[in-house]
Every structure is written in structure tokens, then in C-alpha cells.
């Protein structure tokens, strides 16, 4: 059955520390992405960069329910998932600059950031790449008798991929401890979802495969957190998979450099002003009096300093060693 989660009214089981952590994660992602937006325009950053800004509440809300030994499988828009799963921000920045000391030695880049030690199975250049892999993660947990869970992220566009639909069925029929999180930002590249999906609610597809489907506001950390808490609890307890659809918006182009001529004027401006996840989170926690504005401001300052350092160090880092061209490939000719 597909349900729309009711807006949460309380801060649930979240402690002050949890709330401060969640805010720090979201702020770090925002600052990381906004800084990349600026730095990309200077021409220093090679390749494709897809920014997660606007969607922070999803990564933060989901990953706040995960343990370090749980796994996430990400997308091409993966910086947010990586940060929320605990990846080293400075090593990520070096990776995006293609430098030595990058999280993947500069061999992967923005679209392939991974850290298996932290359960980050990788950003993915192939749309729909993660769901089958996460079925494997679920199978592995089940067969080894652990209570780990796996989370696969896909976009609205990715939810049309056969791999996604096949994975829903496989996870349901094998009762796997996994979540499928659809980040529905209304676009696949330049194609609005009304042109690529007949039924706009992807979560309804869960019905057809026999797993629960839930729709939440992806701009609301608390809504995502609560829906994910329920789904993760169920998965850990052997109750099987969940499909969670988060309605959200992206603040920047599909990739950096995208002119976005397909978007309505002021579309993003309006969302930023009315629905921004950080603004809403701050309002919520400060009006309930749990956290003060000063505490949030202090986090903002910390994060800004961290990202400044990360960019400075990435720019100063040396290029990878040429010998790395043919390492990590078992055999070369």
C-alpha cells in the first residue's frame, strides 16, 4: 500500500546531538556543493559534476538511521550521499579535482566517489546502477546472518530503468533488508517527469511488486527521517524492503554548465524561498527551543572553514602518480 507520511509534529527520538549532527551534515553538503558551483565556473574542476544542493534532507534523513556497517548505493548525483555516510570531505574534494590523496586516488572523480570502509558503495555513472547491487548487499546481510541494511538511491529518471523495477521485485520476493529511495526532483536531465512517467507517484509502483511504498516531502528532514526510521527498523527486523519516494527539487542544473533553458523562470528561486530544507530545519529546532540560533551559526562557521581548507588543499595537491594509470587492474598488457 502506498501511504503519504503525515507531517511529523515532534522531533521524535532525536537527541540534541542528533539534531546538531543532522544540521551539520546538511550544511556540509550545501556548502560543499555551492562552493563547487563557484569553483567549477573557474575551469579548475575537470569533467562532469552533478550537484546535490536542495536535496540535502534526503541524504541526511536516511543516513541518520544507518550504521557505519550499513551500505548505500548512490547515483551520479552522489556527493550528498557520500558526505552523509561519513566520507572524508577533504579527500572527496581532492577526488573531484583529480588529485593525489583523492578518496579514489583521482581515478574515479565526482561520479565515482566511494569508500567501502564506510559502506559507501559508490556514486554511479550508470543510471539505475545501484538497485541491483543493493539487492546483493541485502542478500549478503541475510545469508551471513547480520542485521545490516542497504539503501539504493535513484532519481525519478532512474526509476524507469529496468534494473530498478527488477530489483523491486527481487527484493520483495527474497524479502531483502533494503530500501529503495527515489529522489524525485521532477527532471531527468532536461526532460520533465511528465514526459517520462505516466503516473507521477513512483511509490505507487511498490504495490505492484508487493512491498510498501511511502511518499514524503524531500525538503523536510523530519519527514524523511521518520519514514526511513520505520523502513530501516522493518528491514533490520526481517520485515523486508520499502520503496520511499521523496519529492524534492534540485537547485542547480543537471550538471555544472547546464543552461537550464527547460526550466520555468524563478522556479528554483521560489523553492529556495519557501521550502529550503536548511531554513525549515533551523526554524523548527529553534522555535521548539531545543537548539539556539548561535549553535547553528557556529556550525555554519565550522563548515565554511572546513570547505575552505578542503578546496585550498585540493588545489595545492599534486597530480596523481603516472604509474597509477595501470595499477589496481590485476593485469595489464
Amino acid at each position: 500500500m502506498t501511504t503519504s507520511a503525515a507531517p511529523p509534529t515532534v522531533l521524535g527520538d532525536l537527541s540534541r546531538e542528533d539534531l546538531l549532527d543532522a544540521y551539520r551534515v546538511m550544511r556540509t553538503i550545501r556548502e560543499f556543493e555551492e562552493r563547487l558551483h563557484v569553483e567549477f565556473a573557474t575551469g579548475d574542476i575537470p569533467g562532469f559534476v552533478h550537484l546535490y544542493a536542495g536535496e540535502e534532507a534526503i541524504a541526511a534523513g536516511i543516513c541518520a538511521n544507518l550504521r557505519p556497517d550499513d551500505w548505500v548505493g548512490s547515483t551520479h548525483r552522489g556527493h550528498g550521499h557520500a558526505i552523509a555516510k561519513g566520507c572524508d570531505v577533504k579527500a572527496m574534494m581532492k577526488e573531484i579535482y583529480g588529485k593525489r590523496g583523492g578518496l579514489c586516488k583521482g581515478k574515479g572523480g565526482s561520479m565515482h566517489i566511494a569508500d567501502f570502509d564506510l559502506g559507501m558503495l559508490g556514486a554511479n555513472g550508470i543510471v539505475g546502477g545501484a538497485p541491483p547491487l543493493i539487492c546483493g548487499v541485502g542478500l549478503s546481510a541475510k545469508m551471513r546472518g547480520t542485521d545490516q541494511v542497504g539503501v539504493a538511491f535513484v532519481g525519478d529518471g532512474g526509476s524507469n530503468q529496468g534494473t530498478f523495477l527488477e530489483s523491486l521485485n527481487l527484493a520483495a520476493v527474497w524479502n531483502l533488508p533494503v530500501l529503495f529511495v527515489v529522489e524525485n526532483n521532477g527532471y531527468a536531465e532536461s526532460t520533465s517527469s511528465r514526459y517520462h512517467q505516466k503516473g507521477i507517484d513512483v511509490a505507487k509502483r511498490a504495490d505492484g511488486f508487493g512491498l510498501p511504498g511511502v511518499i514524503v516531502d524531500g525538503h523536510d528532514f523530519f519527514a524523511v527521517y521518520e519514514a526511513a526510521r520505520e523502513a530501516v527498523r522493518r528491514a533490520r527486523a526481517g520485515g523486508g524492503p520499502t520503496l520511499l519516494e521523496c519529492k524534492v527539487s534540485r537547485y542547480y542544473g543537471h550538471f555544472e554548465g547546464d543552461q537550464q533553458t527547460y526550466r520555468a523562470p524563478n522556479e528554483v528561486e521560489h523553492i529556495r524561498q519557501t521550502r529550503d530544507c536548511l531554513t525549515r530545519f533551523a526554524e523548527r529546532v529553534t522555535t521548539t527551543g531545543v537548539i539556539t540560533r548561535d549553535e547553528l551559526d557556529a556550525i555554519d562557521r565550522d563548515v565554511r572553514a572546513l570547505i575552505d581548507d578542503a578546496v585550498r588543499e585540493a588545489k595545492a595537491a599534486p597530480d596523481p602518480d603516472l604509474a597509477d594509470l595501470v595499477t589496481d587492474v590485476y593485469v595489464t598488457y
Binding site: P46, G98, G106, D319, L322, L325, V329, T332
Partner: peptide, 16 residues
């Protein structure tokens, strides 16, 4: 090209 996936870093890709 070498028997290796295409690397991201410009220095490595240029050598590829």
C-alpha cells in the same frame, strides 16, 4: 590504450 579502465584525473587520462 592500456588494458585499464579510463581514469578520471586529467594527467592520467592524457597518458591513457
Amino acid at each position: 590504450a592500456p588494458h585499464a579502465p579510463v581514469p578520471f584525473s586529467p594527467t592520467l587520462e592524457d597518458a591513457f
